[in-house]
Amino acid sequence: MNIYVSNLSFNVQDEDLKEFFTPYGEVTSAKVINDRETGRSRGFGFVEMSDDAAGKKAIAELDGATVENRAISVTVAKPKEDRPARGNGGGGYNNGNSYNKNRY
């Protein structure tokens, strides 16, 4: 089960994230997402757990929990393909609404 964790303190590292979930079952991976340019945490991450029942229990018990004075949000992660691509909100030079679409 892939789990999305948001509102993390910028001090939380991958290993910390793994430790939050380990009491609920086997954590196969835990990754805090960092900004590409600065390397600083973006305040969210993903945890993968091998057992769905353990993942659901972790979500139920950790959602709203306080970690470093912040109430974290813990939900089932949505598949990547369900989200629009970054920067592809209908604008840009190559979108279907291009002003010269029918000019030639």
Rank of each mutant, 00 (worst) to 15 (best):
G43F: 02
R83N: 10
L17A: 02
N100M: 14
G39I: 03
P84I: 08
L8Y: 00
A65E: 13
N11I: 11
S98C: 14
S50Q: 07
R40L: 12
A53H: 05
N97E: 12
E19K: 12
N11A: 13
K31C: 07
Y99K: 14
V32Y: 05
V74E: 03
N11P: 01
K101Q: 15
F46M: 01
G89Y: 05
D14C: 04
E48D: 08
K101D: 13
G96N: 14
F46Q: 00
R70I: 09
D52L: 04
R40G: 03
T28S: 12
N69T: 12
N95R: 13
E37P: 00
N88M: 11
A85Y: 06
I33T: 02
L62R: 07
L8A: 04
E37I: 11
V76D: 03
S73R: 15
N69Q: 15
V47A: 01
K78T: 10
G55Q: 05
G92P: 08
I3R: 00
R70F: 09
R83V: 11
N88A: 13
R83E: 11
N95W: 05
A54W: 01
Y104K: 15
Y4Q: 05
G92V: 10
A58K: 04
G90R: 06
T22S: 10
Q13H: 12
N95G: 15
K57I: 08
S50G: 10
V27P: 06
Y99D: 12
N69Y: 12
S6I: 01
E26N: 09
P84F: 03
K31F: 04
N94C: 09
A53C: 03
N97Q: 14
L8W: 00
G45F: 00
D16P: 02
K80F: 09
E26D: 11
I59M: 05
F46R: 01
F21K: 02
K57A: 11
P79H: 08
I72N: 03
N2M: 03
T75G: 00
N102L: 14
F46A: 03
V27E: 04
G43C: 01
A30W: 04
N7Q: 08
T38L: 03
P23Q: 08
Y4R: 02
A53Y: 07
G96P: 13
A53K: 12
A53W: 00
R36D: 06
Y93F: 13
A71D: 14
V27R: 04
K56G: 04
E26A: 09
S29A: 11
Y93K: 15
R42A: 02
K18W: 05
